[in-house]
Each structure stands twice: as structure tokens, then as C-alpha cells.
Amino acid sequence: MGHWLHRNIIEPGKLPLLLALASFVLTFVITRVITRLIRAGKGPFGNVKAGGLHIHHVVPGVVLIVIGGFGAVASERHGFGSAAFAVVFGIGAGLVLDEFALLLHLDDVYWTEEGRKSVEVVVVTAALVGLALAGFLPFGVNDLSQEELRDRGGVILSVGLNFVFALLALSKGKGRTAIFGVIVPLVALVGAIRLARPGSPWARRFYRKRPRARARSSLRAYRHDRRWAGPRRKFQDWIGGKPDSENLPIPPAS
């Protein structure tokens, strides 16, 4: 284990990234535990207020991100300072992204249906950083051999193609696929060649006069959402807690 850690993490200079990821995930987990205890009225915790104003934890999170980010830039890559500032940055990022939905909606939607976006963003962020830590590089550069890396034209072609695939997936309404496709090119390629989701820019532009394509797109999206919406919601509820019942969507009348 020690040899693996030194060869794959410390020697390539990835220790700050590992510490940032660990502190990010741990901060999010601890924050969610505390907020759920506060919500249930248990434990010694309570909301932080100053003069009647509720101070959300995104505020100290922003401060820590600024300190950790600038500190990491100013410190040496392999020094103790870089590792320490990486931890500070990870803690700040965990606090900020835990309230991502609040920043997006500019409203306190923490325990509402819209608040699920915070959990989703945290999971996606942790997964992307984990892939980068495992050695995946943006736009598939990690798939190139040393000879190809020395060939500037090959690198530019590879990056360009993978960037186009990611853009195509995004235009087809497959945001998660496009994001992960930046790191894992095969994912972007799959998203680029599959049917677009209804309402996406690609569907509005190319399916407008193709009723059969529109019907296939709507049917595939319906089947996909029906299959995965339930498990995804349960996973989000397990991590972040269920939204308030009064904020849950009302099912359509039968």
C-alpha cells in the first residue's frame, strides 16, 4: 500500500488532489449529518445567526476556497503548504457545493425538491476528481502513447475530436454524459451518436420536420426517466435527506 501510494500519488504530485478530494467528501458528509440533525431537532447543533440573519455555511465555504486556492497557487507543489491549502480548499468546496442549489436559485431551497441539485453536483464533482486522480486526463490525452504525445498534430486532433463529441452530447441534452465525456472520451462518443432528448437544441433544430425521430426521442426519454428517476431519487435522499413533503411534486390525476 505504501509503495502504491508513493508511486501513484506522491511521486506524480497528486497528494494535494487526494487530500482535497478526501476533505471535500468528508466535509460534505459531516455537513449533511449536522443539517439533518438540526432539521430533526436533535443534538447540540443549531443554525448560525448574527443579528437575526441566518448565516449559511456557503459563506465560510467561499472564504476557505479563496484562502485555499490562492494559498495553493503560491505554495510549492510538493511542499507541506500545498497539501495544507489543498485541505482548506476541499473543506471550502464541500461547504459551498452543499448549498449549490441555494446559489443557483438565490433562495433557501436546501430542503426542497430543487435542493437535490446540490447532492447531484457534489456526486458529479467527486466522481470527476476521482477520475482525474486515477490518471484520466481531459479530452482523452491519457489514451495517447508517448510517440503520439510528442506529435503535436496528433494531440490537437485527439483533443479536438473529443471536444466536438462532448459538445454534441451537450447539444443533445445529455449534460452528465458531456461532462464525464470530457474525462472519458468513449462516454462523449456514445452521447454524441445517440438520439437527442426532446426539447434539446439538437432536437429543436434537426427533429422539427421529422415526426418519427421526435416520437422515438420522446419514447426513449420517457423509458429512461421511468427506469432511473426512482433509483436516482432514492440515492439522493439517502445521501442528502428527503425534501420537505410540501415541496414534493404533485402526481398528475389519473
Rank of each mutant, 00 (worst) to 15 (best):
K209E: 15
Y207N: 10
R210E: 13
P231A: 13
H224P: 00
G241A: 01
P231I: 08
P211C: 08
P231Y: 08
R226N: 06
S217L: 05
G241P: 04
R214N: 12
R223C: 07
G241T: 05
P231E: 10
Y207H: 11
W202V: 06
H224S: 10
R232I: 14
A221P: 00
S218A: 12
R208G: 08
R220A: 10
P201A: 15
Q236A: 11
G240L: 02
R208M: 13
R204G: 15
R212H: 11
A215P: 02
P231D: 11
W228G: 04
K209L: 12
R220K: 08
R214M: 13
R214V: 10
R227H: 02
F235K: 02
W202N: 05
R208F: 04
P231V: 11
D225T: 02
D225W: 01
H224G: 02
K209F: 14
R205V: 11
G230Q: 04
R220I: 12
R214L: 11
Y222F: 07
G240Y: 04
G230H: 06
D225P: 00
R233Q: 06
S217K: 05
S218E: 03
L219K: 09
A203K: 00
A203Y: 06
A229S: 13
R216Q: 12
R227F: 11
S217G: 05
F206N: 12
R212T: 11
R226P: 04
R214S: 15
P231G: 08
F206D: 12
R204F: 12
P201S: 13
K209A: 13
R216M: 14
A221V: 03
S217A: 15
R214H: 07
R223F: 02
Y207F: 06
R227S: 02
W202I: 04
R205C: 07
K209P: 01
R220P: 00
G241D: 10
D225Q: 07
L219V: 13
R216S: 10
R208S: 15
F235Y: 03
K209D: 15
S217V: 02
F235E: 00
I239V: 10
Y222A: 12
